[in-house]
């Protein structure tokens, strides 16, 4: 199968990038998309050229490393899967495939198709956790958590942190990412004590990192490899509104919202 690839090449964060065309004819339908790129790279190396930098690791759709926008859609034409799970039989001979990196101010390009997604880590550091020390946890069955509640939490928690939601969003917003974490922890009783501070801190961090605001277009859900629902965004918004009232503090202890470990 013969294909034309138009791949974004960019030396470094401050260089100008451009789309470069590559013809490749050693493509079999049984190859994965990333194996096809591996092949292109092997030939580039033998020609003494620098291979195309792209991120990949587990190649089974769970690590969240892959970050390719294929023909204008993050993770490519298949729904509910990451680019590493895309196979070449999805394409036909003669196709022109454009491959670009995630594009967002919060995700500066490192090289070619590799972007810096540490902004997502900083969102998590702002509040995506339960402040609990190791040791001394009560027995796991002391907290009874209904099956449906646990399933909802699991739906939200299945986010792989790839950032496709940001890449797909017209506003490069990380709202679905934040919503998934806030909903996961906010649904479980363990996460409730910190829910008000968590949602406020994470939303503030999102603005600080240069992400846009949610445009309610649901493009994020449509490209999410784990099909995380935008209903979690509504849940996030509710959590935020609730927090807005709760964080004003209770009358008896004016500072109660700021008590506890930081």
């Amino acid at each position: 199968m013969k294909l034309t690839l138009k791949i974004w090449r960019q030396q470094g964060p401050h260089d100008n990038g451009r789309l470069v065309s590559y013809e490749t004819d050693e493509v079999s339908p049984d190859m994965s998309f990333l194996e096809m790129l591996d092949g292109v790279n092997q030939r580039l190396i033998l020609k003494g050229e620098e291979p195309v930098a792209f991120e990949h690791d587990c190649r089974e759709g769970i690590c969240g490393s892959c970050s390719l926008v294929i023909n204008g859609v993050p993770h490519g034409p298949e729904r509910g899967m990451a680019a590493c799970q895309l196979y070449m039989r999805r394409f036909s001979a003669g196709d022109v495939i454009t491959i670009e990196p995630w594009r967002a101010r919060a995700f500066p390009i490192i090289k070619d198709l590799v972007v810096d997604r540490s902004a997502l880590d900083r969102l998590m550091q702002a509040g995506g956790y339960i402040s609990i020390n190791t040791g001394g946890a009560v027995d796991g069955n002391v907290l009874l958590i209904g099956k449906e509640q646990a399933e909802t939490a699991m739906d939200a928690a299945s986010c792989i942190g790839c950032g496709a939601c940001v890449a797909a969003c017209k506003n490069a917003s990380a709202t679905l990412f934040v919503a998934a974490k806030v909903s996961h922890l906010g649904t479980l009783p363990q996460g409730k004590p910190e829910r008000a501070r968590r949602v406020a801190a994470m939303m503030e961090a999102m603005d600080r990192e240069g992400f846009g605001a949610c445009g309610n277009q649901y493009e994020c859900e449509a490209v999410c490899p784990k099909r995380i629902s935008t209903r979690f965004i509504a849940m996030l918004n509710r959590e935020y509104l609730r927090a807005g009232f709760v964080a004003s503090g209770s009358p008896a202890e004016p500072d109660s919202s700021q008590a506890g470990p930081d």
Binding site: Y129, I130, T134, A137, I145, Q149, A150, A153, Q190
Partner: peptide, 22 residues
């Protein structure tokens, strides 16, 4: 046994029965 308790406390959404037990 401690691992499970610790992970539950951290918010790991383990599969549950209808009654709420692990």
């Amino acid at each position: 046994t401690q691992i499970i308790d610790q992970c539950v406390a951290l918010g790991v959404p383990f599969a549950r029965e209808y009654g709420g037990q692990l």
